[in-house]
């Protein structure tokens, strides 16, 4: 897994895949999807798909693929290497690294794109891209944190010819999801460890686990505030942990859509006194109003 391209362009997402052995194109395959790093305020969210022929399911469990969270980091690395070697024979994987900048941008755009829709769309894209590579996908297993029923129905509609199974804790039940979970976790761990700070290459790297509850992460955030720009692009600005710190430590910033986001409908009702006004309003000519031309009165 070569993450150097991502690290040199970490504002953008990066999608990569293993070699695709011919075996995966010739017979029906199962595909598992899992993510790593949904909760942390730091670093990317990594989505992985792992796939193998349905007839080779047993080989996956024999390799010891288990829920990646219960495995140690060394054990995960080791399993990933085994998976990667097997990729030349009967296993393939595809990973999409969603950059923290992409996550912030999505969640903080004018029309908010929430994390659930973002996760679903990423999973859908992984299935589509795998099929595009020629893999004969017949079964899909996905781990989810949200309600599985609506998600499953959504996928069924998009992929009517594939058996879809969306379950909570699928990573502990299905070896192919465990394998995906290992790919995702190994990738995220490497990215976190090797992150290149464009803002300052001597940046203090003692940022803890990245989880909002981790005191080391919180104090790192507090110490690395830029008064104007806020945080390096390693941070998810859309997390309340990050935005609360900026409220205290950075210059305040006002956006044109600030009022809309408050959703205060009471302000839409005009004051009662306004009905008694003379209706003079803006006396400037329409031409100036429409072209945004104003007289400069103060500097």
């Amino acid at each position: 897994m070569d993450i150097s391209t991502f690290l040199s362009k970490s504002d953008e997402n990066y999608k990569m895949h293993s070699e695709i052995p011919d075996l995966l194109k010739d017979g029906p395959c199962c595909l598992g999807i899992d993510e790593a790093g949904r909760g942390p305020v730091l670093g990317p969210m990594v989505y992985s798909a792992c796939f193998c022929p349905i007839s080779k399911k047993q080989d996956l469990s024999d390799m010891g693929c288990d829920d990646s969270k219960v495995l140690t980091e060394e054990k995960r690395e080791e399993l990933f290497n085994t998976l990667h070697e097997a990729s030349s024979k009967f296993i393939g994987w595809m990973t999409n690294i969603l950059s923290p900048n992409y996550i912030s941008n999505s969640m903080l755009s004018r029309t908010k794109y929430n994390l659930n829709s973002l996760s679903h769309d990423t999973a859908i894209d992984l299935i589509r891209s795998t099929i595009k590579l020629g893999v004969d996908v017949k079964e899909v297993f996905i781990d989810t944190v949200g309600p599985p029923e609506t998600y499953q129905a959504k996928l069924k509609k998009l992929f009517p010819d594939i058996n879809i199974c969306v379950e909570k804790k699928a990573d502990a039940k299905y070896p192919v999801v465990s394998a995906a979970s290992i790919c995702a976790k190994v990738c995220r761990d490497r990215v976190i460890k090797e992150w290149v700070f464009f803002e300052n290459n001597e940046m203090d790297r003692n940022y803890g686990s990245g989880y909002p509850s981790d005191p080391t992460t919180k104090s790192w955030l507090r110490k690395n505030v830029d008064p104007v720009f806020g945080f390096p692009n390693f941070v998810r600005f859309s997390w309340s942990t990050a935005s609360k710190i900026l409220e205290d430590e950075a210059l305040s910033v006002h956006w044109p859509d600030d009022d809309e986001s408050e959703g205060d409908t009471s302000s839409n009702t005009p004051a009662i006194t306004s009905f008694f006004a003379t209706g003079a309003g803006d006396k400037r000519h329409r031409f100036f109003v429409e072209n945004n031309l104003y007289t400069v009165e103060t500097i």
């Binding site: 464009f198 803002e199 300052n200 830029d226 008064p227 104007v228 720009f229 390096p232 210059l251 305040s252 910033v253 006002h254 956006w255 044109p256």
Partner: peptide, 14 residues
């Protein structure tokens, strides 16, 4: 956006 400040900013780094 409006930034409530008037100081030097690390534009090229951030």
């Amino acid at each position: 956006c409006t930034i409530d400040g008037n100081e030097k900013a690390n534009v090229s780094t951030y």
